[in-house]
């Protein structure tokens, strides 16, 4: 058994350790709460040969390892967010001991407090707008002249361009329409098709910070926009802990 360190998942306020009973940390580790003033850091023990500098550098390159850690990290953050205002930490924030964790909290104390105030009582919703997969239309036909082929090809390229522009406009409109009534919104980088495994192009990948109570209304708003616009698919996922809105100024 190698030396252990303390892995930090999230910062919150007013958390009793027993509120997280039943949620396992990384590698089944027990979740503990380290406090500094009214800030509570949720931590668990991790082996430093796996989560030390060497170990992380090596392990982060392995997708299986990364997936396991990412999913556990996320599930702990979800559990914390289900009981109080939550500032999720970026993956792989590791201290040598509780003293280090307290020092980390103390250094960013005021900012963490501000962030928690911003996200308290609010959750993140994700909205993606996807264009339908473009069918591969064969413009070439047997016996077609070269000129005719080119004419059709040009027409289809023009149609596509017009269509793409319309879809982008629509994505912008959806983004703005949904922002109405939310606390904050952000556009994230559209995800690559190969990563999502989805057939269509992602036109919009947005995150919204929404009051807890407004979640259902937000979801119906998405549904009504989908009903109006069949040319795209609008997906709403959530609620997430406020990952995209808990941001410290660097």
């Amino acid at each position: 058994m190698s030396e252990s360190g303390r892995y930090l998942y999230a910062v919150t306020r007013g958390l009793e350790p027993q509120q997280l009973a039943g949620t396992p940390g990384l590698d089944g580790g027990h979740l503990d709460v380290v406090e500094h003033l009214d800030l509570c850091a949720v931590v668990s023990d991790v082996a430093l040969d796996e989560y030390g500098e060497e170990g992380l550098r090596r392990n982060l390159e392995h997708l299986d390892w990364l997936e396991r850690v990412a999913r556990t990290h996320d599930s702990v953050v979800h559990a914390v967010a289900s009981v109080g205002p939550t500032a999720p930490l970026r993956l792989a924030t590791v201290y040598l001991d509780d003293e280090g964790v307290r020092r980390g909290l103390a250094e960013r104390c005021a900012e963490l407090d501000r962030v928690l105030g911003q996200v308290a009582g609010r959750l993140e919703w994700s909205v993606k707008v996807l264009a339908p997969a473009t069918p591969v239309v064969s413009t070439a036909e047997r016996g077609m002249s070269g000129a005719e082929y080119l004419r059709r090809k040009k027409a289809s390229a023009e149609d596509k361009e017009i269509n793409d522009a319309l879809l982008m406009d629509l994505a912008d409109k959806v983004y703005e329409a949904l922002a109405d009534g939310t606390v904050a919104s952000r556009r994230l980088q559209p995800q690559d098709q190969r990563l999502t495994g989805l057939a269509g192009t992602m036109l919009l990948n947005a995150a919204y910070l929404v009051q807890d109570d407004d979640g259902p209304a937000f979801q119906s708003h998405v549904k009504s926009l989908q009903a109006e616009h069949h040319e795209v698919s609008i997906e709403c996922q959530g609620p997430w802990p406020p990952y995209s809105f808990a941001v410290l100024e660097q």
Binding site: G5, L8, V11, L48, Y51, G52, E53, L56, R57, L60, L66, E67, A70, R71, H73, D74, A87, P88, L89, R90, L91, A92, T93, V94, Y95, L96, G100, G104, E107, R108, L112, V115, S126, L188, Q191, L195, T196, G197, Q237, W240, Y243, S244, A246, V247, L248, Q250
Partner: peptide, 24 residues
Amino acid sequence: ANLADILERVLDKGIIIAGDIRVN
């Protein structure tokens, strides 16, 4: 959630505090 969504959040978003273990 799908892995792409989780990775997007835990790797690109969330609070950055310098831990004792420095990952580049």
